[in-house]
């Protein structure tokens, strides 16, 4: 039996106003240095970043911060949530939440790293707030994903919410261990009713940024894209097309990995992430 140990990760609750309402958000962090603000995928939470938050090589130079979006993980929905007919994430609300958290924490030129919906919003952030963020890293990041199944199945009383995990299970690549595969799916099984579906409104409808990718100025806000080979939601082709549209963007395709790199294959993902962070750190010193 191994001895019990505390991880270097500290979790706290942050009280702040977002979108004109008081919120209580769950925030985890570890390390010190350049702020690295991590954004989870649709319908999941910040546990996806557990390996980044535990990597000594990264924690040496980066203050890694991951928070649960409102309605996700241990962050509550705003009071009065039960009177809302349907939760829906929009581009404007999502960007306001990320900037609001960065402001509340007083982060200086943070690096924003997001996956899937997070990988999409960092493109919006690079476009709309290029001087607020030091760089962005988009994981499974593309300009748009067209719906390929009927999303009504994700939220109806006669189908258990477990379906969200079943829908995304194939997005995990073959490199994933059983433990990390099912940890990743567990987060999906724990999502609140309709939340995954509401996040996908941003991903598949409202957040289409294809037409504006050319306007991103990577001199002001560098853009790095990392995408897993087995992702059929945001495919490698989608990421390469986005990179081709953003002058100065870098893209790397990660073999054997799927849609949840940081959670499904933490060690494999870190080998791709560390060089990107090292490059960001070197360019920041200049």
């Amino acid at each position: 039996m191994s001895a019990a140990v505390f991880e270097p990760v500290v979790g706290r609750y942050l009280r702040l106003d977002l979108l004109g309402k008081p919120h209580r958000l769950y925030v985890e962090e570890a390390g010190q240095g350049i702020p690295l603000l991590c954004l989870h995928t649709a319908g999941s939470d910040s546990r996806q970043y557990r390996a980044v938050l535990n990597d000594p090589a990264i924690l040496k130079d980066f203050r890694v911060i991951a928070f649960d979006l409102p309605w996700h993980g241990k962050s509550s929905p705003p009071s009065g949530w039960h009177e809302i007919e349907e939760y829906r994430l929009t581009s404007r609300d999502y960007a306001d939440i990320v900037v609001g958290v960065a402001d509340a924490l007083g982060l200086d030129q943070p690096v924003a790293m997001g996956c899937s919906i997070g990988g999409r919003i960092v493109l919006h952030l690079a476009l709309e707030h290029p001087d607020r963020f030091g760089a962005v890293i988009g994981l499974q990041s593309g300009g748009h994903v067209a719906p390929y199944y009927d999303m009504q199945w994700l939220h109806r009383p006669d189908v258990h919410g477990e379906v969200s995990a079943a829908v995304v299970s194939g997005l995990i690549g073959p490199n994933a261990s059983d433990a990390d595969r099912w940890e990743t799916l567990w987060h999906y099984m724990q999502g609140g009713p309709g939340i995954f579906k509401g996040d996908l409104y941003f991903y598949k409808v409202d957040g289409d940024i294809r037409g504006r990718l050319r306007e991103i100025d990577t001199q002001r806000c560098p853009v790095h894209l990392l995408t897993g080979e087995y992702d059929y939601s945001c495919t490698p082709e989608d990421t390469l097309a986005a990179a081709a549209s953003i002058p100065g963007a870098n893209a790397v395709i990660m073999p054997g990995i799927g849609h949840f790199p940081m959670s499904e294959d933490p060690e494999g993902f870190l080998t791709h992430l560390r060089p990107v962070l090292e490059r960001i750190r070197a360019e920041r010193r200049r």
Partner: peptide, 25 residues
């Protein structure tokens, strides 16, 4: 994955999909 086949239009699912989606795993 079945949904990968669906995504690239290689698999079609027809009829009353309720038992399929409710028991997708």
């Amino acid at each position: 994955d079945l949904f990968a086949l669906i995504r690239f239009k290689r698999l079609s699912v027809e009829g009353d999909m309720h038992p399929f989606m409710a028991n997708l795993f």
